[in-house]
Amino acid sequence: MVKVTIDDIEIEVEEGTTIMNAARMIGGDVVPPAMCYYSSLPGTGGKCRTCLVEIAAGSTKDPRPMPKLMVSCSTQVQDGMIVKNRTSEKVIENRGAVVEFLLINHPLDCPVCDQAGECDLQDLGFSHGKAGTRYEEERRTFDPIDIGENIKLHMNRCILCYRCVHVANQLTDQRVHGALHRGDHTEISTYIEKAVDNDFSGNMIDVCPVGALTDRTSRFKSRVWFLNPMNASCECTKCSGKAVVWMFGKQMYRVTTRQDKYGEVEVVDGKPEWICNECRFDKKDLSKWTIEGPRHIDRHSVISQGHYEKPNPLKNATKNIE
């Protein structure tokens, strides 16, 4: 066990823990934001640079401060390390710069984007961004394409977190999409349109922090904050069958994985509960699901403003559905 201090809060964690995970154990505002790191997908992280933190002391053995800001998602804690996140002006300044970088080529088409309301970039822009922009140049643009039967790719919105590439590498038997070109012209794409056709490829939509990958079966149907998310389960041979169904009255608009407060898929008994494409795209019928109760979404302020779950939620919800 090693002791680490993050924003003046001391915590003891196992050796090999990253600063990010140590901060998540403390919870609350101490947790640095993450756009590319995804704990259930090994290998993610380090790319977006939003989780930069200042290390005021490396360890008890070597208490020198680190000259550069470090990414908390991939830097392991050392005994006696002192980390500054919110308490460091340098961090706040540079994180603001990263947000600016992420936004300069982002189309800011939130009014027509399906991700609006549950978008990590919106949250990040709200918490760390500036009201104005210094960017006067033309933004780089791509045409939206269908990378799979059910997945739409809006490359303009992509922040190149590579999470979807890791999903394809780790959950599907073959990855058919990836990054093409380089620099600010890098794009996530397939060589052949609609090539992504795999049982678990739909999880790409859930791991996408922005609206670059959206569900073609539910896009443009409704804003997310008008929908009521419900925990639901079904008998499925391919996946856990545990999902969140998004209802409008008795109509089911979409199905997603169950996500925790960091926007990551819930892990039960060490296994992330990904869902298969059949559950996600084809079972849009209440009769195929058992509703467990309302889903509490505490991360995205807009959705949680609904408060539909307040008075005896379970009873009311099931009654409505009956």
Partner: peptide, 25 residues
């Protein structure tokens, strides 16, 4: 540098291209 940036991390990917555009102007 903007042409040769790998496009992996945001400050380099966006920043080098931004600098190039400003300098061109």
């Amino acid at each position: 540098y903007s042409h040769e940036s790998c496009g992996q991390c945001s400050p380099c990917r966006e920043g080098t291209a931004w600098m190039e555009k400003v300098l061109r102007r």
